[in-house]
Design a protein around this nucleic acid. Sequence first.
DNA 1: CATGAATGAGGTTTCATTCAT
DNA 2: AATGAATGAAACCTCATTCAT
Lengths: 172, 172, 172, 172
Amino acid sequence: MPRTKEQFGDMRSNSKTIIADTALKLFTIEGYHTTSISKIAQEAGVAIGLMYNYYKSKEDLLVSIIDEHLQKMFESITRKLNQVPENQKIPKMIDLMIEVIMKESSSWKLIISVMFQPDVSKIANERIHNVFNHQEQLFEIYYQDKGVNNPAESAKVLAAILHGAILQFACS
Amino acid sequence: MPRTKEQFGDMRSNSKTIIADTALKLFTIEGYHTTSISKIAQEAGVAIGLMYNYYKSKEDLLVSIIDEHLQKMFESITRKLNQVPENQKIPKMIDLMIEVIMKESSSWKLIISVMFQPDVSKIANERIHNVFNHQEQLFEIYYQDKGVNNPAESAKVLAAILHGAILQFACS
Amino acid sequence: MPRTKEQFGDMRSNSKTIIADTALKLFTIEGYHTTSISKIAQEAGVAIGLMYNYYKSKEDLLVSIIDEHLQKMFESITRKLNQVPENQKIPKMIDLMIEVIMKESSSWKLIISVMFQPDVSKIANERIHNVFNHQEQLFEIYYQDKGVNNPAESAKVLAAILHGAILQFACS
Amino acid sequence: MPRTKEQFGDMRSNSKTIIADTALKLFTIEGYHTTSISKIAQEAGVAIGLMYNYYKSKEDLLVSIIDEHLQKMFESITRKLNQVPENQKIPKMIDLMIEVIMKESSSWKLIISVMFQPDVSKIANERIHNVFNHQEQLFEIYYQDKGVNNPAESAKVLAAILHGAILQFACS
DNA sequence: CATGAATGAGGTTTCATTCAT
DNA sequence: AATGAATGAAACCTCATTCAT
């Protein structure tokens, strides 16, 4: 009698999580290039080939991990921001970001480090920079609405401070 | 007429310099792992094997480049600090560091990026962190001498600010 | 009500037939090596593992398909040849072969292509060549009985023409 | 003292020839997919990686071998056809083709077999079919010039006979 | 009989390093 | 000092096959 759809779904979900978590850990500690697929498999206690049931390639694994974390963070933040009055959204957003980052610092260390590793993965790199650029734009709109003198410049400064702080934290 | 010893030395130092400069450029733009020795050789216009006349390995090349730049910076800074009264040495040091970094930003981008790339080279990584830790200690001594309340903490903060600024600059 | 033995047999034969037909189609279009078991299963709408209920291996699947078609052809031909006077058997055989091949050209394209693919399967390859060699021997006996001068040579020529024609047809 | 350009050129040429010849032999005997790169290297007496100094990939190796042989054949044929009166060019061309094929039968076995192996390499396959289609067009022009009734049809028949003959020969 | 996640041998490919000249 | 062909370990990746349910 074959397993049910649900049982198979659970198996997949479990394996995928184990692999992604192990990869995240090793990428963070050892770095992306020096972490081999077989090392991940060994550490995760699965066969080498299993990763390829869930991810197209090593790069796809990295990008997926990063995407998932970025998405999770922004989902959670966006949800919480709904209950905040318009003119306090940006300060609150900064608070929330730092909160999220502190709660899941290990995965964030990876994300931060990828930002400074041009050779890790151009794709992953672009994703992250897009996110940060997008944030700067949000800041600019915020400053425009507030009638600040030079919103673009102010947004740049705010983004620099925020991202600098994240960075300082993640690398401590 | 046979070449003089100096001319040989020049040639050597010439090829060596070209290789090191090319490597620095490529490491910074493309990253350490994605820059192959043959790419460096091609870009530098020399044979693949030539690098191994000057450096033991690819890692040694990286470490040497970094060491050289760190050393050059601290030599230059130390020299200039001799003419500065004791109690202004730290502020002056910070000025000088930023000045040096701005003048040779491309090499500093590499150094910074290596700091965040655990997989590039443990050795290079350690060197750099040693330098930054050493600097923190200097700050601590400075604050002790000044009779500041909590010199260790103050040194940490100063170092964080300085290194954060360097980082912000290097990654802009 | 429990299923009868026959119903089970039908189901088995159903899945088996679907798998074999799908495999034949894909092997012909895409080639043997580039057609994966999972592709066949997907296309056939069954689980990957099911194939192994019916066939020992991928190679066995191929050999079985080929064997089945060869056997079916010769059974059908032999049956029809019984009603033919002895001295017309060979010409009739040729007619029948061409008829069969034209009726099931797609499967024959596979068989032909396997003949020219040493790397597909040594076993399958040998089977097919045996069949063709066997046919040549039949021709030789036929020519001997007819008192032809050089029966071996004539048989070879006849076989070459026939098989050349089959080939030309199958690859058009 | 480094080797001269010429010495290096000879080395390259020798290695490339050894690899291509060995590959041709193995592809013909064992087939493309069942011949591994390491088998070729071993048989050729060189390191596994050497092939990649000369060819981009295994497929590129195959395509290059085929291209080279097709080109060599048509060059040689075209050269010889220059000295033949216009209205005898096609018959002469057929003679020459058969001559060339008989002289280098082993490489032609590979080419023929690739024609019937859709999974070997779509690229190689297309190249070969282009050549044969081109030839059919030449035949058509020839028949047009001769004022034959149905030149397209006649060309198709002539091509079929010629290529059938080549095939019969190559697979004997 | 049917399922598909899991396995791992074996393939292709890369590239730091060596070495004869 | 300089050359670049040759090496081969080790990486990534594929896919036929197994097996628990």
